[in-house]
Design a protein around this nucleic acid. Structure first.
Length: 507
RNA sequence: GGCGCGUUGACGGAACGGUUACGUGGAGCUCUGCAAAAGCUUAUAAAUGGGUUCGACUCCCAUACGUGCCUCCA
């Protein structure tokens, strides 16, 4: 099976081909750091992490960029309303910079807990202000922009394919819109590239608006009239017009600065299709004249108890909430992998429990590697062994399942079937090396850390096991049960099969 | 008001125009020193009504319900 993904750009499952053979560039829309991420946010990062792991399993050299939106952009697509970071700052009595730093660290910590591969570039928007200005400059120079009272806007009517990506019906949307648009905008879909700090305000995060991106060195004053900055009546301070980037410009600027004008893959949530990604495409392709990204992958959303997660409803659990209820980030990771990234998921604690149990069972399989010895049989004999052969084929089957548009549910099924073959057979017939190899494949593609999370039992515990073995051999059942209880207290469960005794983790 | 999506068993969740998905949980049986595991069995699976077809969970139409975007949010 070749590597293929559902591409929003074409609406089809497309065979993946990178621009440079063997190398792939990916841009992932990252978090806005003004609050704790909820489980719905994490779903996206888990799926895109799987994408990266699958590409690596196919021997691609992956260069991935994820932005951190640490500059306040506005709360709505209409470029109106309160700024999230400034709002968060007020809520917590901190500056926007402090808020951004705090939640950036929290996010990075969450990534670590979930076992997400760190992107090669984690780009903070505030570190790329000059790049963003440069991109605005380019669009100004090419005539794609216009300036109104509150900022510099992109004229979407100058990008004829604007509606194509999201299959928008702009006229119908305008007619049905329930929000009022900024009356100065030429088209309802026009968006801000650069916003001016409102007169008389001081923001925590603001930068000097370069004269070059302003129209003829003029700007509209509050009375709506254009005045020249050369006018000596205007105080010098006013000529230093402060501003900040619009909502969409950072992703284009960061992506192209680091990865070049055309990316292989751009990822994000489906909610980004109609506005954010549509705007990214418009501004990027207007500036460069070449296609911005060859593949666009979008993850569906997660619901909680069949209702959507939203900040305003306050039903978004955080990783910490899950941990307080006894579920680890990896339990959640397996829960997420149980469904396809394009399907709307539904989170309930029952479902999470189901994933937790599944992971626990898998860990007990992984622990078997400590309990079997390297087989002494020859290569020829090993090749004859069904179990060995099927375990080796399983690794390849997992990768092929994932290659087909990130088929994580199918991959999990393959793992279950392979593990079932192991539990059914006598331990002496399982080849240790091929089990380890399978576990390594699972960990590298799905990030479940089966190997790291399943250490061997202690020497003390092994000693008890041996004592119990001899007690059983002389049919001293009282002693045997006593030793079994002793191990249970140490969180080791044992079970006796026909030929041997197997230990498992209690938790 | 405009545009779109979904509806599979107790729960989660796949594939597929005809063949047991798989997992988690429940019940029963077998095996077993006990326990556990495993194996086997089991519970009216495809929202509803039509249509196409030799045959539909799978394709088409309608209805119901749910839900998403257009407004924060992945």
């Amino acid at each position: 099976m070749t590597l293929q993904f559902h591409n929003t750009l074409t609406g089809e499952i497309d065979k993946f081909e990178s621009i440079v053979p063997g190398k792939v560039s990916i841009y992932t829309c990252g978090p806005t750091v003004y609050d704790y991420p909820h489980i719905g946010n994490w779903v996206a990062y888990i799926y895109w992490d799987t994408l990266v792991r699958v590409l690596m399993a196919n021997d691609y050299d992956v260069t991935r960029v994820m932005n951190i939106t640490d500059v306040g952009h506005l709360v709505s697509d209409a470029d109106e309303g309160e700024d999230k970071l400034e709002k968060g700052a007020r809520r917590e009595g901190k500056t926007a910079w402090e808020v951004a730093k705090f939640y950036t660290n929290d996010f990075l910590n969450g990534m670590k807990q979930l076992g997400l591969v760190t992107p090669q570039f984690i780009a903070k928007a505030t570190d790329y202000i000059p790049d963003q200005i440069k991109l605005v400059q380019k669009l100004v120079d090419k005539g794609y922009t216009y300036q109104i009272d509150d900022g510099i806007y992109f004229d979407t009517s100058k990008f004829p394919t604007y509606a194509d990506f999201a299959h928008l019906n702009l006229d119908a949307q305008k007619a049905g819109a329930r929000v009022e648009f900024n009356q100065q905008k030429r088209n309802a879909s026009d968006f801000a590239l650069w916003k001016f700090t409102p007169a008389g305000e001081k923001r925590d995060m603001e930068w000097l608006t370069p004269q070059e991106i302003l129209e003829d060195g003029k700007w509209n004053m509050e009375d709506g009239k254009s005045q020249s900055i050369a006018n000596s009546q205007i105080p010098i301070a006013n000529s230093q017009r402060m501003g900040f980037p619009g909502w969409h410009i950072e992703c284009s600027a960061i992506a192209m600065s680091i990865l070049g004008e055309t990316l292989d893959i751009h990822t994000g949530g489906i909610d980004h299709i109609p506005v954010h990604h549509t705007n990214e495409i418009a501004q990027s392709e207007s500036a460069t004249g070449v296609i911005f990204s060859n593949y666009w992958l979008h993850n569906n959303h997660l619901k909680v108890n069949n209702t959507k997660i939203s900040k305003s409803l306050g039903n978004g659990y955080t990783l910490k909430d899950l941990q307080e209820k006894g579920y680890s980030p990896l339990d959640f990771r397996l829960f997420v992998l149980q469904s396809n990234y394009r399907k709307e998921g539904n989170f309930t604690f029952d479902n999470l429990q189901s994933a937790k149990n599944r992971l626990h069972n898998w860990r007990n399989i992984a622990a078997l590697r400590h309990q079997i010895h390297d087989t002494l049989q020859s290569e020829a004999e090993r090749a004859k062994d069904d179990k060995t052969i099927s375990l080796l084929a399983t690794s390849q089957a997992i990768i092929e399942a994932l290659n087909d548009d990130l088929g994580t549910p199918q991959a999990l099924k393959i793992i279950d079937e392979a593990f079932a073959r192991i539990t059914r057979s006598s331990l002496s017939r399982v080849d240790r090396q091929s089990l380890i190899q399978l576990l390594e494949t699972i960990d590298s593609t799905l990030g479940l850390q089966l190997i790291d999370s399943t250490p061997d039992i202690s020497d003390e515990e092994k000693k008890i096991l041996l004592l119990r073995k001899s007690a059983r051999e002389r049919k001293d059942w009282d002693k045997s049960d006593e030793l079994r209880d002793e191990l249970l207290k140490l969180d080791v469960i044992i079970r006796d099969t026909n030929s041997e005794t197997v230990w498992e983790y209690k938790i």
